[in-house]
Computed example of a mutant assay.
Amino acid sequence: MTAPVTAILLAGARPVPDPLALAAGVPVKPLAPVAGRPMIDYPARALLDHAAIAQLVILTQRPDLYAADPATAWLATHPRVRFETGGQGIASSLLALMEGEGLTYPVLLTTADHVLLDGAMLDQFVAEAAGADVAVALVERRTLLARYPQSRRTWLKFRDGWWSGANIFWFGSDKAKRMIALWQEVEQDRKKGWKILAAFGPVALFGALLRLLTLRGGIARVGRKFGLAARLVAMDKAEACIDADKPEDMTLIEAILRSERPEA
């Protein structure tokens, strides 16, 4: 049985104003309404409703904004929720949090714009990530396009398919800090897949470019390089990689929330 999981929900702000926040007239993107509720409300409730999650840590530069908003004030008083103040960088904020006290492993990390996160996704991810030092959730392109053919994502191409991130990560032990330190180095280039691969060495970079590596094997190999067990979790649900990043994402997400079979 998996040990009680600490969930971290990233709810920070970008260094520059976010277009979705500006359009909604709210100070930070996680407070932007989706189908009448702040987007952070959806993943927060999904995490707290899941049996594996023991506590929820919300990492943000402005905890006061959530306590002041009537729609999210419940988070500030919930007995299993605590706010931690982060800086501008995700990786540096995580490392600071992990170096402090009161954070127990395993840790599941996701984002406040993961509006469609649900119990089925958490069931699969926790079950398949358990036992790893680091795990990352991804969705293969065929899984997404079979259900939402017009959805546009950032894809990394490997021998075992085209993959897009699902913004769910697993840190099973203190060893995960080794990978987060590398994440810190390439954080500004996280949308540029080849730069991230280059950080793992020429074998990973050219292997991916020549389609010599599977992503599953590549993640495991990188993990071994850092002395830890790393794992890919291929998510079954296409919705796992649809986050609220652009206006068209918001339109699709609201359609999904309204109907089990939206026109995408």
Rank of each mutant, 00 (worst) to 15 (best):
G36F: 15
K157H: 03
T85F: 05
D245W: 05
P106I: 10
T104P: 07
A13N: 04
M121N: 03
D18E: 14
K191Y: 02
D245E: 11
D118S: 04
D245I: 12
A51N: 10
A204T: 13
G100E: 10
A73E: 15
T251G: 08
D243T: 05
T110K: 03
A234Y: 02
S173D: 15
D133G: 08
G223D: 04
R14L: 09
G102A: 02
G89P: 01
A220K: 08
R211W: 09
I253E: 06
A181Q: 04
D160H: 00
W163S: 02
A199L: 08
L48R: 11
D133V: 12
L156V: 13
A96Y: 00
S93N: 13
T72N: 05
D49Y: 11
K177L: 14
I242F: 10
K246G: 01
F125H: 02
R80H: 11
A127R: 11
P70H: 11
A264Q: 04
V16A: 12
R224L: 13
H114I: 03
L56R: 14
A166T: 13
T85D: 12
R216Q: 10
A54T: 04
E140Q: 13
H50R: 05
R14E: 09
D245N: 15
P70V: 15
D64V: 09
A137P: 15
Q188E: 01
L205R: 02
G193H: 13
L9M: 14
I90K: 13
T85I: 13
L257Y: 01
R211F: 06
Y105V: 15
I196R: 01
L75G: 09
F226K: 01
V222D: 07
A73K: 12
G102S: 05
G172N: 01
I40F: 14
K177Q: 10
L56S: 08
R141I: 06
A46P: 05
G217P: 01
D133A: 12
A129L: 02
A91D: 03
F125T: 00
E254T: 12
P202W: 10
S92T: 07
H114A: 04
M121H: 00
P202R: 09
V16Y: 09
T77F: 11
L116S: 04
D64S: 11
L138E: 07
S93R: 11
T251A: 12
K192P: 01
L257G: 00
L31P: 04
V203L: 09
L257A: 06
L182S: 02
E254P: 15
R37Y: 15
A146N: 04
M179Y: 14
P70C: 05
R159T: 08
W170C: 12
I219L: 03
V26S: 04
P149F: 13
F169A: 11
L205G: 02
K225Y: 03
